[in-house]
């Protein structure tokens, strides 16, 4: 594959064409790659937010994976501890992952001992291959492996169509699986990892940096961008409570600003999820069919959410499928 020199020319035209990319198609299976039209930003032009205390976040735009952004559409973070480095979500493609690795290496030579993949979605996982030579533990939820089995090839092929095989890389399976709670020490700095019940997906991990009180809820918390439901709505409402019980000082969401006030952001997300839940349940009780429900439930909740029109109907279908078995 190497030696084949694809030229990424005409990025101006790319931007024009990307407006016409279909969002629902790439959203199949909750694939979080559908966002706003590309602005021509490239992975290597992203900057890192230095949040202090060795904590760095690459804040990703609300975009769809394109050649221009190389799949870098989810937030990705790393923590430099006294002894080692931990990566949370290694990027949306191997190209994105390599960029992240180079940014880490600009800042520290400490070993990267842990790479956490917070859930199955490709914008959070496909950068892992870039870290293989560092020989970290690749950490995932106990349900991540079967989820990769079921969906990996589908995601891989979809992503390859957008980025080309040399940029996508291969899936890296977790070498350490977490089914409950685990703690990792970066050198007098404990990171607590929680394996959640089905919520955003069925394999969500969150991390809590105990020394700074920073929560990394990954895609259990969407900010600005409409949440996408790919696991269990009831579960998400439940796991949200569990996160709130931690009472973190601040949070780094999977999508949105690098750092947010957790309580306010979660309250806003809960308003939407609750409306989705209540509306769907009412529709089922009233015998409203799934297609009509997808057009009407929570339709008035769009204010302030990016991509609401593209995702709400699909969220209703997901919720309906789940709640109709109650």
């Amino acid at each position: 594959m190497s030696g084949f020199d694809l030229q990424w020319v005409g990025n101006g035209r790319h931007a024009a064409g990307d407006v016409r990319f279909t969002r629902r198609e790439t959203f199949a299976l909750g694939l979080c790659m559908c966002c706003l039209p590309a602005h021509g930003s490239a992975a290597h032009t992203f900057s890192l937010n230095d949040l202090g205390n060795g904590l760095f976040v690459r804040e990703a735009p609300h975009e769809e994976a394109t050649l221009a952004n190389m799949g870098a559409i989810a937030n990705t973070c790393f923590i430099i501890g006294r002894d080692s480095v931990l990566v949370i979500d290694p990027g949306g493609s191997v190209t994105d992952g390599r960029w992240l690795l180079s940014e880490i290496r600009k800042r520290t030579a400490k070993p990267i001992r842990h790479v956490v993949m917070t859930h199955v979605h490709p914008d959070h996982c496909f950068g892992a291959e870039a870290f293989v030579d560092e020989q970290p533990e690749f950490i995932g939820h106990a349900a991540l492996r079967p989820a990769f089995d079921a969906r990996g090839s589908f995601y891989h092929q979809r992503l390859v169509e957008m980025l080309g095989p040399e940029n996508v890389g291969r899936l890296v399976y977790p070498t350490r699986e977490i089914s409950d709670v685990a703690e990792i020490d970066l050198g007098d700095r404990l990171i607590r990892i929680i394996a959640h019940g089905a919520a955003h997906t069925d394999c969500d991990l969150s991390l809590f940096d105990t020394s700074t009180g920073t929560l990394f809820p990954a895609d259990l918390l969407f900010v600005d961008r409409i949440p996408s439901l790919d696991g269990s709505l009831l579960g998400w409402l439940r796991e949200a409570k569990r996160l709130s019980a931690i009472a973190p000082a601040r949070a780094v969401p999977g999508h949105g600003p690098a750092m947010v006030d957790f309580e306010a952001a979660m309250a806003r997300q809960l308003r939407y999820l609750t409306a989705l839940h209540d509306g769907t349940r009412r529709a089922i009780a009233a015998g409203i069919a799934i297609n009509e429900a997808s057009r009407t439930v929570a339709a008035d909740q769009g204010e302030g959410w990016i991509l609401f029109e593209d995702y709400n109907g699909r969220n209703v279908i997901q919720a309906y499928k789940e709640l109709e078995w109650e």
Partner: peptide, 9 residues
């Protein structure tokens, strides 16, 4: 040896 990547436009 290059190829050109094109979008719909």
């Amino acid at each position: 040896k290059g190829a050109v990547v094109i979008d719909l436009a």
